[in-house]
């Protein structure tokens, strides 16, 4: 499962994931530089699909490329003896032929959030733990600009980077059985928004009236990897009267 061409200057190496997919590995760290590189190449793949291409899944250090093996094996213009070779050769060629433009033009999405009270039951606990007032927690949380590193866990769940280290809080010792959709939480160094009502152990500091995932929309998830996110505090009335 070594790279097929000489890989001295390669920005990624490929490895086999399944009969339907391979993964391009760009690196092993979480950084904005890596995010831009991965978002850039992911756009390139989707603009230049090969026969049988299905979809691609960007993550912190990888892009996984999914395909229909029957269409790939029948594609005579893709060189290689098997699907894995055909697709990895194609992607290596695509990378050689194109200057990968780091994607810096990300969309900024504002998440109106009602902090505390019934919408963020753990806000006071989080504030107390860090010897901050609840307002200071809200200010710290809503003044940062976050980056979406990847979507995973459940449909539409965004892994956000960029939270103030002052807010890092361990998960609840006992996860809640159900967390309402739209809940904004903190777990360790991460902050995120629950798109669906699911069980979870994150500390809940607020809730957004936005719908993060709606299967009936053309783009079902509100956020995608590479987007920028800010949280904007709103009060109870604004939350209750909010219209998508």
């Amino acid at each position: 499962m070594q790279p097929l061409t000489d890989s001295t200057n390669k920005v990624f190496t490929a490895y086999y994931l399944s009969e339907h997919a391979l993964t391009l590995e760009f690196g092993h760290e979480i950084s904005e530089d890596m995010l831009q590189k991965i978002t850039g190449f992911n756009i390139l793949i989707n603009q230049n699909p090969f026969p049988g291409f299905r979809t691609s899944v960007p993550a912190y250090g990888t892009i996984s490329v999914f395909y229909d093996p029957i269409k790939v094996i029948q594609a005579d213009d893709l060189p290689g003896v098997d699907c894995y070779e055909k697709v990895s050769n194609y992607l290596n060629q695509l990378s050689d032929d194109s200057e990968i433009q780091p994607n810096t033009s990300s969309i900024l999405i504002t998440i109106p959030t009602c902090y505390g009270g019934e919408y963020g039951e753990d806000l006071e606990e989080v504030a107390a733990l860090h010897h901050l007032s609840t307002n200071e927690v809200i200010n710290l949380h809503s003044s940062a600009i976050y980056k979406v590193y990847m979507i995973g866990f459940v449909p539409g769940f965004a892994y956000l980077g960029g939270m103030s280290a002052q807010l890092a809080t361990p998960r609840k010792p006992t996860p809640r059985k159900i967390i309402p959709a739209g809940s904004v939480g903190i777990a360790g160094m991460q902050t995120g928004i629950y798109p669906l009502a699911t069980p979870g152990g994150w500390q809940l500091i607020g809730r957004t009236p936005l719908t993060l995932f709606d299967a009936t929309r053309t783009q079902p998830t509100l956020l995608k990897a590479g987007d920028q996110v800010v949280f904007k505090p709103i009060d109870h009335h604004q939350f209750e009267n909010y219209r998508d």
Partner: peptide
């Protein structure tokens, strides 16, 4: 198969 990037299984 087409919404994996949005975490739809």
């Amino acid at each position: 198969n087409l919404y994996l990037s949005q975490a739809v299984p």
